[in-house]
Simulated assay, not measured.
Amino acid sequence: MAFTLTQLNALEAALASGQTSVSYDGKRVDYRSVGELVQARNIVRAELIASGQLGAAPLSNRGPGALTIFSRD
């Protein structure tokens, strides 16, 4: 199934507000738990990253990293 950024935004907004129902494009989906909502968000996010519609998140929240290499020449 092809997911959209609108669906991802709706899922993330529901998570941020603590709700378990999501509405987008005139549709409504009720999830049984926050865990199920998180799982749905992760699936949608992974599909959007795989399709190139969304960039992958960094592995760290510490900002850009740099690698420094020292040698004893």
Rank of each mutant, 00 (worst) to 15 (best):
M1D: 14
V34C: 11
D73E: 09
L48T: 10
I43D: 10
A56H: 03
P58V: 05
G35W: 12
A10V: 06
L59E: 13
S23H: 13
L15Q: 11
V22Q: 01
G52A: 03
A2S: 15
Y31S: 03
F70E: 12
A46K: 03
A57F: 12
Q7M: 10
Y31R: 01
Y31Q: 08
V34E: 11
R32S: 07
I49M: 12
E12R: 00
Y24F: 09
A66Q: 15
L54P: 05
P58G: 03
M1E: 15
N42G: 07
A66D: 08
R72N: 14
D25A: 11
R62M: 06
R45D: 02
S33N: 01
Q19N: 07
F70T: 07
A10S: 05
E47L: 14
L8N: 05
V38W: 12
L15H: 04
M1W: 15
I49T: 09
Q19H: 04
A66M: 09
A56S: 08
L11M: 08
T4W: 09
L37M: 03
D25K: 02
S71Q: 14
S60F: 14
Q7E: 13
A66G: 10
V29R: 00
L37K: 00
S33M: 03
R72S: 07
R72F: 15
F3Q: 01
V22F: 11
G55C: 08
T4M: 01
D73M: 10
Q39P: 04
P58N: 02
I49V: 14
L48E: 05
E47G: 03
A16N: 11
S17L: 06
I69D: 06
I69K: 01
Q39H: 02
Y24N: 00
S23M: 15
L8Q: 04
A50S: 08
A66S: 08
T4N: 00
A66V: 10
I49G: 03
P64F: 15
T4I: 02
T20F: 14
G26P: 06
F3P: 06
D30N: 02
E47V: 15
V38S: 00
T6M: 08
S33C: 05
A46C: 12
R41I: 10
A2L: 14
